[in-house]
C-alpha cells in the first residue's frame, strides 16, 4: 500500500511506493551472492511480465497561506489549495471549519490534472481565534491517497 507523509511545517506531502526510490542492488544483495557462491554462475533472472499499477497520490502545489500555516483573518479571509493529480483522477477537497465560522468553498478543476479549492471565511467572530481549519485532498480513484493540511486561525478583534 502506498503511504503519504506530510510535514506539518510545510504541508508538503510525498508518496513512498514499495521498491521505488531505493538503490538498485545497494551493495551485494544476499540472494545474488548465494547464487554465485553455490553455482559459480549466477542465477537466471526472469523479469515479471507485468508489474502492479501504482496509483500516484495528488501532489500539493500551493497551499496558501503557506508560511507557518496561519490564516490571519485580519489580513485576508481565503485559504487556497492547489494540487496536481498525476493519474488524471478526480480529486475531492474536504474542508473542516470551526462551528463559529461561516464559510463558502469554490472548487476549480482547472485543467485535466490541476485542481484547486478556495475556502472563503465570511464571518469574523472573535471566538475563531486559535481554532483550526483543515483540508483533506482525496484521490477518488484511491482514497488512501490523500493530503491533510491544517491552518490555525489568527484574529485580533475587540
Amino acid at each position: 500500500m502506498d503511504t503519504v507523509t506530510c510535514t506539518s511545517q510545510t504541508g508538503r506531502c510525498s508518496a513512498q511506493h514499495p521498491g521505488v526510490g531505493s538503490p538498485y542492488f545497494p551493495l551485494f544483495p544476499g540472494w545474488h551472492a548465494s547464487c554465485i557462491a553455490a553455482l559459480m554462475t549466477g542465477c537466471l533472472y526472469v523479469e515479471p511480465a507485468w508489474s502492479p499499477e501504482v496509483n500516484l497520490p495528488p501532489e500539493l502545489l500551493a497551499p496558501a497561506p503557506d508560511r507557518d500555516h496561519i490564516l490571519d483573518l485580519n489580513q485576508f479571509s481565503q485559504v487556497l489549495v492547489t494540487v496536481r493529480e498525476p493519474d488524471l483522477d478526480q480529486v475531492v477537497f474536504l474542508w473542516r471549519v470551526p462551528d463559529a465560522a461561516q464559510a463558502e468553498v469554490v472548487d476549480l478543476p482547472q485543467d485535466e490534472n490541476i485542481w484547486a479549492s478556495l475556502l472563503r471565511v465570511t464571518s469574523k467572530s472573535p471566538s475563531l481565534d486559535g481554532q483550526m481549519i483543515s483540508c483533506t485532498v482525496v484521490d477518488e480513484a484511491s482514497p488512501a491517497n490523500r493530503i491533510e493540511i491544517d491552518w490555525t486561525i489568527m484574529l485580533e478583534a475587540p
Partner: peptide, 17 residues
C-alpha cells in the same frame, strides 16, 4: 486575484488578495 504564495521567505507578505 488570490495569490497562491502570500509570504516571502523572511515572513513579510509578498502579495495579498
Amino acid at each position: 486575484v488570490f495569490p497562491s504564495e502570500l509570504q516571502a521567505a523572511g515572513g513579510d507578505y509578498r502579495a495579498l488578495p
